[in-house]
Design a protein around this nucleic acid. Structure first.
Lengths: 231, 231
DNA sequence: CAAAAACGAATGAATGTTCGCTTTTTTTGT
DNA sequence: ACAAAAAAAGCGAACATTCATTCGTTTTTG
């Protein structure tokens, strides 16, 4: 039915955005006057991974710069070569994630096909993206409060766009007689929540040894039931 | 099918725990040496409601005691009559919510009935409880990081108990031939997420003018589909 | 008039950020 | 090919600010 697995998605991802750390470099090196791409990319990785560890355990606001310095092994002064202040760390992470998500999710050359197929594709692609960038998605969900209004609105808008797209596909399927869904708005909202579950409770599925591919299979099966897809 | 509405739940709630502020008083007045129940209950309300407002907009960690003093209209020194330190505010809120949830959700005298009916009852009851204590549930979900391990484990345990109960009812329905659900674990997890959606994105349903009762109706309908309940 | 509740300036600890300095890397001139 | 010089990256103690918390006093309540 759908020929996309996490493995194939990953090669696609690598081709489109290379990796998250160089993306971070590309978006910020100018303002920060960072010259050497190679060393800066590595430093971004160690710093941001430390941010994820600390904000995961105590929250971004509770993380101090001393914590971050110790966890990353980079000195106080050294850190400030990679961001201009603490709140900008969160802004950089959010900005880079929005950038990467736009690249990966708008990459659906498959337009005007079977709406059910497109829905499957969208759901699968989102799970795979949030699997690849699990820490990033979790951070953005939990710490979106410490953003300025502009970025916050950009996040909200991209979320609503996602839900609207889901709803659009459901309605199209209904119109074409492929499904009979009596509450499309509710189902679209539920599908979105089922996508979020994957990155909000990663420990749960690690514990049960459930892979992204298995989760997608279950998700698509449930989507068929909620949509009332005719077999 | 199920004779429980938000209105009837509320009278039941009022009978069981009176209201959240006096619950807060009952659980904490001894350690804090609060004598006058009436004034203390009112103060708890103004203080904790202010905590919810501030932590909603900037997060609990970012909220300062000066913020809280200004928002609530209670002086710096006055605040400390109602908790011994900042982290204890979060602990008190969590403790009271767990207490209230235990009272309300274990109040299912209807045991060993039709498992489908019991599932309906549990789902509906949880939505109604989280509707009544929306702010509380949201706070606990977002700010559980600033708790000591003991309380955090208590929260985790009660969450897992909820999911286990859902799973249990699904399996029972399958065994009795009332449903045919091929992935009970996944469906239990999804139902739990659908419960969380109600208090994590309250603005969404306020905007669309969807009441708790309407949400429950949609939720139960979807549950039937996911379970494959035979009509 | 006691006892309880409320006040808010004062205190000390902790936090984000800076800056003069050292080390490492890159570029340049021969 | 190599050293000298310039540029970039890294360091951490010092600074000003902000925060949670306290305590002597005043106000309110029963």
């Amino acid at each position: 039915m759908i020929n996309l697995s996490y493995a194939t998605f990953q090669t696609e991802f690598n081709a489109l955005v290379a990796d998250e750390w160089s993306c971070l470099f590309d978006l910020n090196h100018e303002k920060l006057n960072l010259k050497n791409r190679n060393t800066a990319t590595k430093k971004f990785q160690t710093i941001i991974e430390s941010v994820f560890i600390l904000s995961n355990s105590k929250g971004f606001q509770a993380m101090t710069m001393r914590d971050l310095s110790q966890q990353s092994g980079v000195s106080m002064g050294g850190l400030y070569k990679y961001f201009s202040n603490k709140t900008q760390i969160a802004a950089m992470i959010h900005g880079a994630l929005v950038h990467m998500a736009e690249i990966c999710l708008n990459n659906t050359e498959t337009r005007d096909q079977d709406p059910i197929f497109e829905l499957n594709e969208l759901l699968a692609r989102h799970i795979y993206l949030s699997e690849r960038l699990k820490k990033w998605f979790y951070f953005v969900f939990m710490e979106s409060k410490c953003l300025d209004k502009q970025l916050k609105e950009k996040i909200m808008a991209s979320e609503q766009y996602m839900e609207a797209t889901l709803l659009n596909r459901i309605n199209a399927a209904n119109d074409q007689g492929l499904s009979q869904c009596s509450n499309p708005d509710f189902v679209a909202a539920m599908l979105k929540v089922m996508l979020q579950e994957w990155y909000l409770k990663p420990w749960k599925y690690q514990q049960k040894n459930i892979s992204a591919d298995q989760y997608v299979a279950n998700l698509l099966f449930s989507a068929y039931q909620l949509l009332g897809v005719k077999s």
